[in-house]
Amino acid sequence: MIQRIQTLYLAIAAVISGGLSFLFPVWKNSANMDVMAADIIWMIVLFLISALLSVITIFKYKNRQTQFVLGRLNIILNFILLGVIVYLSLTLSGETAVSEKGIGMILPLFSIVFIVLANKAIKKDEDLVKSVDRLR
């Protein structure tokens, strides 16, 4: 159902991936200008796929197993996004002169935390349903 706690966690993860990623800079370039996620096309795509996957997971509430699998896929996607962002930030040209990272670099980590909390709540619901089925 929509009013479960995992819906809140998934909505927060969707807002982080879909909204906050366009507000906070990922890093500053050598000209001391903010580089946003919107400046890099594949980063936009990965953030939006993550947000879309979170929204789809919210509306799959009738099938908890599918919700759980979509949550895991979203976690993997966010780990890939985090890894690529860290790799790019470490291989920036002029890295010795500029070492200022933005909060946008850790947004996938926050998203991962909320998706893990949602998966934990989904698992708890699934265990509750299984225990009730055993009593019948």
Results as ranks from 00 to 15, higher is better:
D125Y: 14
T7W: 10
L117F: 13
R4L: 07
I112A: 11
F59T: 02
L82I: 10
V113M: 10
I49L: 12
M36A: 00
S17A: 11
L128V: 00
V132N: 14
A13M: 01
F47I: 00
L53E: 07
K28A: 03
G71H: 07
A118P: 01
S21D: 02
G71K: 04
I103F: 14
S131H: 04
Q3G: 02
L128A: 08
V26M: 10
F47S: 12
I115D: 05
F22R: 07
L52C: 15
Q65M: 04
E95D: 01
A38E: 11
D133Q: 09
A37G: 12
F114E: 10
L88H: 05
L52Q: 04
V84D: 14
L46V: 12
M1V: 06
P108T: 06
A13R: 01
F68L: 09
N29A: 04
I85H: 08
V55F: 09
A38W: 11
I5V: 06
L77R: 00
D125G: 08
N63D: 15
K60C: 03
T57A: 14
N119R: 10
I80T: 06
E100S: 13
S111C: 13
K101L: 10
N63Y: 03
F68I: 03
G71D: 04
I115C: 07
V116S: 13
A121P: 00
V129F: 14
R136M: 09
I40W: 02
K123F: 02
K60G: 01
A118H: 08
L109M: 13
A11K: 00
Y87F: 12
V86R: 07
F22W: 11
G18Y: 00
A97L: 14
L82A: 15
K28N: 08
L52D: 12
A51M: 06
I49E: 07
I44S: 13
S50M: 00
L92C: 07
L117T: 00
V69R: 12
